[in-house]
Design a protein around this nucleic acid. Structure first.
Lengths: 155, 155
DNA sequence: TATAAAATGTTGCCTTGTCTACACTTTGAC
DNA sequence: GTCAAAGTGTAGACAAGGCAACATTTTATA
């Protein structure tokens, strides 16, 4: 069946990958579902920040911070509402439900932890903050615990 | 204007967030564009792995590994072709262009680096491999360099 | 060599996340 | 109190990424 290897990558160093199919598929599946929640997490965190620092969270401000159009922000806020994370009445700003607040706090803590670990590893603050924005959504509880332990037991 | 702060998060530690709007927007924008290339990176790496270990990369195998339907795999392979990363003729399997091979190698090296750093931080191998799948797409060159340096010099 | 099974490819549909363009409220300045 | 500006909301379009169902080609085997 297998056509004879073309060999053009035959000089690859080790080829340690290709775990059992099921494992790999599950892994990627998890990565995919993480993506769908990443945006909601970002919104929840930003709304909490705005509420705390400005006293209100308006769609336009959210859009500006996130670099998207206000239409996009409003549509995502609807998703937030559907997910039971936020409440909003027309022209009255956005608020977080208890669930939304809990999420925002969890996200904030995780963000800090990721940034701190990156910094501890020697990553410049600027890059650490930027990369953490993407990384944080893919860090599991297990890894988070390891991060916390690492920071505690080491400078 | 700002309604008086509701105070429900007033006991937050520091509120060190909310950088200049432009900065934050740029950050999120980068995160978003990283997402659009993440899938292509995964495909390129997997195709390289399959070519190396099996001698061929068939849509069905790719689909199985990734846990998606073959229709999805085929559609993404088309995107790979459009992006100049792969070539494929009907019923003849998928191959990587030079550009695609270069990408696959870069992705593989990055993946290893991320896994190694996570392990060095005390994350169990299992979790490290799983989390790296998501994290790796958001690690900048700067951070990558810091990782490499950390691994070389740490104890 | 037929023919059944497997793989491949196509089509049409769904959801997200994004945009622009347009319509409608609120707010602030006069 | 009026009215323009700012903010808000809605509609329609598009690409990405996913699926199931169907059509086609290759491969394997009886």
């Amino acid at each position: 069946m297998a056509r004879s290897p073309s060999g053009f990558v035959s000089d690859h160093p080790a080829l340690p990958r290709l775990p059992a199919e099921g494992t790999q598929a599950r892994r990627f599946g998890k990565t995919r579902s993480a993506q769908s929640t990443a945006l909601l997490e970002d919104y929840a965190e930003l709304i909490a920040d705005l509420l705390a620092s400005e006293g209100e969270a308006r769609p336009t401000d959210i859009a500006r911070r996130l670099g998207v159009s206000h239409a996009t922000a409003i549509k995502t806020i609807s998703r937030l509402k559907r997910a039971g994370l936020a409440t909003a009445r027309p022209y009255r700003g956005v608020f977080l439900t208890e669930k939304g607040q809990a999420l925002a706090e969890r996200v904030r803590a995780r963000h800090r932890l990721v940034v701190d670990v990156l910094c501890a590893l020697g990553v410049p603050t600027e890059a650490a903050e930027a990369d953490a924005e993407g990384i944080e959504h893919y860090v599991s509880e297990t890894t988070l615990k390891a991060f916390a332990h690492f920071l505690k037991t080491r400078g």
